[in-house]
């Protein structure tokens, strides 16, 4: 697929390189001639100098024939504008943008950006996974990130222990997929399945309910 990346910095440059390795045709637009020169040295003639919010520059980068545009500049304002300009001027199929500020994720979403990647959420997700107490592991985003598959390890002295699944007031939309016991045995997530110490629960969770689910399952007595 032909992909236009706007912003060739900390995110854009490695992204370009990995997409090229995956066999995609990539072109990078950046306002900084030094960034463009360095991309050209490392990856070939796949970058040009231009403003993220200039329709002319987007055109020069080949936005008219791109399957997707990915906005990775440091400026949330530019990331939104470049996606919207690409959508209205080139009818681009898919726009993807990084939102550095958490409050901009919702705004981007409601302003027509097809996929919003929240920088803060990514860092938080990784940190949460790395924390040793009651681990929450985000296994996989599902359905355009509106849901996610998560694994939650229950603490030994949690309030959930000894209860059945139906007794837990799970957040709306949450589906328990599998329960894995401390011994590594799996048990089916029937409504009368009893939660035991150090069970690991695999769940399909609406992304905005995962924190609530985690709290419910790991609350201590």
């Amino acid at each position: 697929m032909y992909l236009v990346i706007v912003g060739g910095g900390k995110v854009g440059a490695p992204l370009a390189s990995s997409l090229i390795n995956e066999g995609h045709e990539v072109f990078v637009l950046d306002h900084d001639p030094d960034v463009v020169a360095s991309l050209q040295r490392e990856l070939g003639m796949i970058a040009t100098t231009g403003e993220a919010t200039s329709v002319r520059a987007l055109q020069d980068a080949g936005a008219a024939r791109a399957g997707a545009l990915i906005a990775t500049t440091d400026s949330d304002a530019d990331n939104l504008a470049t996606c919207q300009l690409a959508r209205t001027n080139f009818d681009i199929a898919r726009t993807i943008a990084i939102a550095h500020s958490p409050e901009n994720s919702e705004l981007f979403d409601r302003s027509g950006v097809d996929l919003v990647v929240s920088a803060t959420d990514l860092v938080l997700a990784n940190l949460t996974t790395a924390l040793p107490a009651h681990p929450l592991i985000r296994l996989m985003p599902v359905a355009d990130r509106s849901q996610e598959l998560v694994a939650i390890k229950l603490p030994a002295a949690g309030t959930a222990i000894g209860r059945t699944l139906s007794e837990l007031r799970l957040p709306y939309g949450t589906k328990i997929v599998l329960i894995i016991t401390a011994a590594g045995q799996s048990k089916p997530p029937d409504s009368d399945a009893i939660i035991e110490t150090e069970d690991e629960i695999i769940a399909l969770s609406p992304t905005n309910s995962t924190a609530e689910l985690w709290k419910l399952l790991t609350e201590l007595r």
């Binding site: 993220a52 919010t53 400026s75 949330d76 304002a77 530019d78 939104l80 504008a81 470049t82 919207q84 901009n104 705004l107 302003s111």
Partner: peptide, 11 residues
């Protein structure tokens, strides 16, 4: 800055 004005206005 145009894009900042656009972002603020849309918010």
């Amino acid at each position: 800055k145009d894009s900042l004005n656009g972002l603020a206005a849309q918010r």
